[in-house]
Write a protein that binds this DNA or RNA. Structure first.
Length: 501
RNA sequence: GGCUCGGUAGCUCAGCGGUAGAGCGGGGGACUCAUAAGCCCUAGGUCGCAGGUUCAAAUCCUGCCCGAGUCACCA
């Protein structure tokens, strides 16, 4: 039992183009979960890249390189994006890796044996130019709605997954597990889809070759290939002990546009393989730019690396998680990021650290006084628990709001008690108690904020002079009075320098 | 077109049957340790529109308007 690890995944990112800030969003949320989970025990954060399919092949062709060369280049870009945003992944899987492909083939063989897949006809209108299938209803005057060229009727023998067979079981699972799909909005939509009925799913392609080759010809449908990463990466059929430690996943984080694949197809495939479904799937909202969908045609795609350079990775992480409820859409704007940065991070948090350490330096030579005021310990005794509860519910905004109550209370305490006056009046005991409270509160903030803004949280502790204690279990670390008196603080540069217009 | 979700103070949102709330921005005040930061006070908004149920409706029901998403092999 204690062997179990908290397993969280991001989608594997489709690399037909360069990453944008929306990709970073999912990874950041997953990273917060993983970082928190690691304070409680084992955790495993998986991310990676989805490298097959027509669009990747096309992108490679346009760039004049082989698909493999293209994916090698793009995967490296994605990995550096993770580093830039401090995504502490435990593994990064690429679907072109042998460890993944060989297991995909094994899945295919097993499904053949179990009778969950069969050969059928895959038919539809096909636009050769766009290499896309269209439904009859989507055609415009019998032509491709995209390029207006003629379409042709294509009919191929392909492998089908008997998805429809699992409809009743899916419905039952939804009924008995109301938290299987979150938020509620996504759950409702997927339930409605299920109630509308399911068709079997074509899981092979013969009209392209950039994919996992299947015995007998053709390649695996890229979506099935992609979904399987969640089990190939943790050793399914190759390392059963490892696999059992992680599976079923605690949560798959996804963007809401890919909910159907994760909440309907994926559990059915797992059941066909005799495996349990993931514990939950969370479909977060879309990030828009000034209210508009991120898209190349709108020209509003901006480079997430440049964004991190300008604002700092921690500021971007904070903004994304603080600004909106995790399930809902929200709009990015540089101005709002700047406001959050200056108001929350600079004025409230950074300045709190600064003014506290400056006064400690001035009045007590930067040494943590021996008097521990107890009132904050009583008031905020359950703050760790409350924050943790919010994180586990993926209510990141709520978690940060909880944490900021402590930030505000500490700032308020300074103004109410006026340490400069206590110093003038020689009220040594009161001054010590307040200064200790500030330092101890800041030590707490380091722990509480570490999942969200890891580098700055570490810097808070560094300026406080507390040792490398981030990552400790909160139940142990967040005991009021744990901060050692007599410790020398260091101070330092402003944590979040104010950004001007 | 079907379905889902939303439309509450300038902005972002909470409230979801009992005489309108928070944060930010804006305005005012007292201080000075601090990143001209922090603290205190201050927001008089037809709660999208029109009906209905109820002693009582942002809060339930109906219709409409507006926005977003989704509709099956489209990364």
């Amino acid at each position: 039992m204690s062997d179990r690890a908290y397993y969280v995944t991001t989608p594997i990112y489709y690399i037909n183009s360069v990453p944008h800030i929306g990709h970073a969003y999912t990874s950041i949320a997953a990273d917060v979960l993983a970082r928190y989970a690691r304070t409680r025990g084992q955790a495993f954060l998986l991310t990676g890249t989805d490298e097959h399919g027509q669009k990747v092949a096309n992108a490679a062709a346009e760039a004049g390189v082989s698909p493999q060369a293209w994916t090698d280049r793009m995967a490296a870009t994605w990995q550096s994006l993770c580093r830039r945003y401090e995504i502490s992944y435990d593994d990064f899987i690429r679907t072109t890796e042998e460890r993944h492909q060989s297991v995909c083939v094994e899945v295919f063989e097993r499904l053949k044996v179990s009778g969950d897949i069969y050969v059928g006809k895959y038919e539809g209108w096909y636009c050769t130019y766009d290499e896309t299938f269209w439904l009859e209803s989507k055609l415009v005057d019998g032509r491709c709605p995209e390029c207006r060229r003629d379409v042709q009727w294509l009919s191929e023998d392909n492998w089908f997954f008997a998805l429809s067979r699992y409809r009743d079981r899916l419905l039952e699972h939804y009924r008995t597990h109301p938290d299987f799909v979150r938020p509620q909005r996504a759950y409702n939509e997927m339930l409605a889809t299920l109630e509308g009925g399911l068709d079997d799913l074509c899981i092979s392609r013969t009209n392209l070759d950039w994919g996992v080759p299947l015995p007998g010809g053709g390649v695996m449908y890229v979506w099935l290939d992609a979904l399987l990463n969640y089990i190939t990466a943790i050793g399914w059929s190759r390392d059963e002990e490892r696999f059992r430690r992680y599976w079923p996943a605690d949560v798959h984080l996804i963007g809401k546009e890919i909910a159907r694949f994760h909440t309907i197809i994926w559990p059915a495939v797992l059941w066909a393989l005799g495996l349990p479904e993931p514990k939950s799937i969370f479909a977060h909202g879309w990030l828009t730019i000034e209210g508009e969908k991120i898209s190349k045609s709108r020209g509003n795609v901006f480079d997430p690396f440049a964004t991190a350079d300008f604002f700092g990775a921690d500021t971007v992480r904070y903004f994304l998680l603080r600004e909106a409820p995790f399930g809902a859409d929200f709009s990015w704007s540089d101005e709002k990021v700047r406001q959050r940065r200056n108001s929350d991070l600079g004025n409230d948090l950074g300045n709190l650290l600064r003014r506290s350490l400056t006064m400690l330096q001035r009045y007590r030579d930067g040494i943590v006084p021996p008097v521990a005021g107890a009132s904050f310990g009583e008031r905020f005794g359950d703050l760790g628990e409350r924050t943790a509860g919010r994180i586990v519910e993926l209510d990141f905004r709520g978690a940060l709001a909880e944490i900021w109550e402590l930030v505000s209370a500490l700032n308020r305490a300074i103004d109410e008690q006026k340490p400069w006056r206590l110093y003038e009046q020689g009220a040594q005991h009161e001054l010590d108690a307040l200064l200790y409270t500030l330092c101890e509160g800041l030590r707490w903030l380091g722990h509480l904020l570490a999942p969200f803004i890891p580098a700055k949280a570490a810097e808070i502790h560094q300026q406080l002079g507390v040792g490398d204690e981030l990552g400790r279990n909160w139940n142990e670390a967040l005991r009021w009075g744990d901060l050692t008196a007599g410790q020398q603080t260091r101070g330092g540069e402003p944590l979040f320098p104010r950004l001007l217009d």
